[in-house]
Amino acid sequence: MSALIRVQDVHRTYRQGEIDVHALRGVTVDLDKGEFTALAGPSGSGKTTLLNLIGCLDRPTQGRVLIEEDVISEMTGTDAANYRLQHIGFVFQAYNLIPVLTARENAEFILQLRGVPPEVRKATVMPLLERVGLLDMSERRPHELSGGQQQRVAVVRALAAKPRLVLADEPTANLDGETSEALLDLMLELNKELGVTFLFSTHDSQVIERCRRVIRLRSGQLAQPDEGDA
């Protein structure tokens, strides 16, 4: 079976004033469809950088990133934005939601940008909101929701769009143990039920333990062993 995502010898160098920061130094990794993978590593090891590259938010200095047959590492500007809109779901560490839109409107946002009619949007989003226990909060604005509730709305937004993959950068970092556990449960269940491919970065060893596959980064390179490949 050919991989959903192929990261091929990717380098990313940031230029900071006079010095070059080598955030990624030759990373090669494949992800299969339906995988539930954690991206682990110490702070500064390049996790966010790699997620940005796979999420078509940034371009590698060297190497390629492919999603199915699309060479996303070569996309720029409007093409990249459209690719993200059509194929990738995001859940960020914080500040996930558009402040002036309600929970439901936020959850429907991607669908609305894609031009899905209102009834279809609602029919798609409401069951998911119910699934994450937010049905009665669907008309609240983000500032009227707790951090965990906001993260769940973001998960619903990502999943409602039925993307090829969902990328999450430390989705549980701002949540307490119990809430982060619950969010992880939710993502695992949705991964099983809907077969959505998940890739998320984390520091949390409890979270890492529950993942089927863990990719470990150290100083911008893969640290062996990568359990999933074993």
């Binding site: 500040y95 558009i98 940008l113």
Partner: peptide
Amino acid sequence: VREFGLLSALGVTGP
């Protein structure tokens, strides 16, 4: 800035 970054990440084009 964050909001615009978020919109952009979600696939809203610059224009």
